[in-house]
Structures are given as C-alpha cells and as structure tokens.
C-alpha cells in the first residue's frame, strides 16, 4: 500500500513541477493526436455524410466494413502500417518508420472509421423535415446539403472530439510505429508502458494523470457541445 501511495505522491509532485520528460511526452501525444484527428476528419466526415445521405449500390456493405473496423485491434493496424512503411515495404523509401508521421498514419487509420460512423449516425438522425424545408424555401442542392450538415454540426464536432480522445489514449500503434524515442516519438501511453516496466511507478502515475486530464478535457468539451 505504501508503494502505491508513494507512487501517487511522486506522480503528483512531478505533475505540479511540470516535469520536462512528462511535458515532452504530453506534447508529442497532443501533436500526433491533433494531426491524426484533422486528417481522419478530412476523410471520415465526408464519408459519414455520404453514407447517411446518398443511396448507392454497396452502401450497406460499406457501413458494415466501417462498423467492423471500429473493433480493429490497434496492434493489427500497427502491424499493417508497419508492413507498408518498413524498409522492405512499398513505402519504405519514405523512411517513415519510428517517426511521428508513422504514428500519425496509424492513428488516422484507427480514427477514420470512428469519425465516419459517428458522423453518419449524427447526419442520419437529423429530422427529415430539414431537407424538405430547405427544398421548399428554394435552396440549391449545395445549400440543402449544407443545411443538413449545419443541423448535425454538434454531432460532427462530437465525432471529431471522440476521435481525438481515442487516438490520444492509444498505445499499440504508437509503440510499434513510433519506437518510443524519448522527446521524439514517445507519447504518454508508450511512456507509461515503459516506465512501469522499469518500476518507475510514480513517473507512470504522473504520465497517467496528464493523459487523463487531456481525455477529460476532450470529453468535457464533447459533452458541452452536445448539450448546447
């Protein structure tokens, strides 16, 4: 018990003192999470909108594939991306392995289905009358689509924030593709895994507290937006 309490105390002291190693890992986590969320949103939001509004052959299959992808283990994504970007892989020439870009690619693959499915649900739940009202008020096709998007905007933002929360707390992809290089590719989650294995429980707690704070703020924003 003493061991645990000492660990918590050490962790809190490191957080309060803004331990440079903790802050570096937090910065890498926020940086790769931010870019992965932006890129995944650029792809996932239009896909979600299209699946919610368009009717085309293979739509049901596409939705099933996306929903299945939600359950993909992160180490499997890590392994697949590793195969592509490792020296012997088709993208090996780009020398991406063990760089922040490699983590971002893996996290984008992880987040796209999440953003697409959440935004699809959000657009599909918009009242049917929105479209008809826009049509009867003389809106062009583009404005009708924009109006539907505008009505679903809180759900779309919530989808983006949920993706950020998910990619920030991910460990398998960051470990496999980033290589856990201190100050470069070491994220909060990979640092926790490393430090706890080294017996640095207090350090692990400090990293965990910062990670939880990031996820808490993200979820708080998401909830605030949905409620408003």
């Amino acid at each position: 018990m003493e061991y645990l309490l000492d660990g918590f105390a050490d962790g809190l002291i490191r957080v309060l003192r803004a331990d440079p190693e903790v802050m570096r890992a937090a910065w890498v986590t926020i940086k790769v999470g931010f870019w992965a969320t932006i890129l995944a949103s650029l792809i996932g939001l239009p896909v979600g909108f299209l699946l919610a509004t368009a009717r085309f052959h293979g739509r049901g299959f596409a939705i099933t594939v996306l929903q299945t992808s939600l359950g993909l283990p992160t180490v499997v994504i890590g392994l697949l991306v590793y195969g592509f970007i490792s020296r012997r892989g088709p993208l090996g020439f780009a020398d991406l392995l063990f760089t922040p870009s490699a983590i971002i690619i893996g996290l984008v693959v992880l987040a796209i289905p999440l953003v697409a499915v959440f935004s699809m649900t959000s657009v599909a739940s918009v009242d049917d009358r929105v479209r008809e009202t826009a049509l009867t008020l003389g809106a062009s096709n583009g404005l009708v689509a924009w109006t539907v998007l505008r009505e679903a905007r809180f759900g779309m933002v919530a989808a983006v924030l949920a993706a950020f929360g998910r990619v920030s707390s991910e460990v398998g992809i960051a470990m496999m593709l980033g290589g856990n290089i201190e100050g470069y590719t070491r994220t909060l989650t990979t640092a926790i895994a490393l430090e706890s294995m080294k017996g640095e429980f207090g350090f692990g707690i400090a990293l965990g507290v910062v990670l939880l704070a990031i996820i808490f703020v993200t979820n708080f924003l998401s909830r605030y937006i949905q409620r408003s």
Binding site: E132, T133, L135, T136, L137, G138, S140, N141
Partner: peptide, 23 residues
C-alpha cells in the same frame, strides 16, 4: 420534382403542418 426542380421550388413554397425551424 425533388432537388432538380429548383425553379418550381422558388415559385411555390409550402408551410408544413408541423413546420421545422432550423437551429
């Protein structure tokens, strides 16, 4: 009818029985 009928939809407007007001 529908989306292609922009000209008609700008000449004739329907007030629905249970109108929807945008956010």
């Amino acid at each position: 009818f529908g989306k292609p009928g922009l000209k008609h939809r700008r000449q004739v407007t329907l007030l629905a029985q249970e109108p929807y007001l945008f956010r």
